[in-house]
Simulated scan of single mutants.
Amino acid sequence: MTDTRRLYQQTADRVRQLIAKGDYQPGARLPAERELAQQLGVSRPSLREALIALEIDGTIEIRMGSGIYVLNTTRPSGNGRSLGESPSELMQARAVIESAIIVQAAATMTDETIAALRAILAAMADDITQGRKPIEQDRAFHLAIAESADNTLLAEIVTNLFDERHSPLSAGIRGHFETTDSWTAALTEHHAILAALEARDPLAAQAAMHTHLAASGRRWLET
């Protein structure tokens, strides 16, 4: 029977099997991500998602700057339990959908929306300066662009995709890999999107949005 579970669930079970076989005892450090990904024949993003899932269920602990350590060798299989959508697939979906939406949004963009976007980015910059994670400002920026396309279904899709960032899996990845530097990079990319919208240049806006979301996915899953 074909395994229809998400790839990160399948990969997590393969790591569990390595642990269950006795290859790695409690307290042992797993191979580095790159080596383990090669061993399992999966991409680093898929492996990182699997490792976050294993950390959530208490099988391993990820210690930034130190390594990945086994905590428990008796954890059962995940039993198909989903911790949310794959963050790599989520960011790919957002790149496709939001890059298409912004073309339409650029054609209907008003001066009022441009001003609102500027205010959102100013608040985002303030959050970063104060050491706060500006996820609500990030959400407001992307949703304001989607809403300006004058299509409620498209705006709802963007909202649902963005809010998947609060799933256990995405939240676990954000907790480890979002930093002040990553948010500063995102803010710079947002300004590039806004500049293209101010110029009423739909192709430049599309390119800037795709560049931003692709870079966001890399910061989460490949750094």
Rank of each mutant, 00 (worst) to 15 (best):
A185T: 15
A100M: 11
I128W: 03
G172T: 11
M109P: 07
I145D: 00
W183Y: 15
S99M: 04
Q206P: 01
F141G: 06
A185R: 11
H142G: 10
E98K: 02
E98S: 09
L117Q: 03
I157A: 09
P134N: 05
E178Q: 14
I114M: 07
T179G: 08
A105N: 06
N151Y: 04
H142P: 08
F162H: 13
T110F: 02
M209Q: 11
Q104L: 09
G131C: 07
L143W: 04
T110R: 04
L203E: 11
A195R: 11
A107Q: 08
H176W: 07
R200Q: 12
A171T: 12
M109K: 00
L143K: 04
T129I: 02
E189Q: 09
L154Q: 14
I145L: 03
L187D: 01
T129C: 05
Q104S: 10
L153A: 06
T184G: 12
A144V: 15
E189G: 13
E164H: 08
P202Q: 03
S170A: 15
A123F: 05
G172E: 01
A171P: 05
I157M: 11
D126I: 14
P168Q: 01
E198T: 05
W183D: 14
A195V: 10
E178L: 11
E112G: 11
E112L: 07
R165C: 01
I128Q: 10
A105K: 03
H166F: 11
D181F: 09
A155D: 10
L203A: 11
G172R: 02
D150M: 13
A144N: 01
D138S: 11
A192K: 07
S167A: 09
E112Y: 04
R139E: 14
I157F: 08
H176M: 11
M124P: 04
L169T: 06
I120E: 01
E178R: 08
A106T: 11
T180K: 12
E178S: 15
A122I: 12
A106P: 10
D111K: 08
I101R: 02
I173N: 02
A140H: 05
A199E: 11
Q104P: 00
A199Q: 14
I114T: 06
T159C: 07
A186C: 13
V103A: 10
A119V: 05
D138P: 04
S148F: 00
A107L: 03
S182E: 05
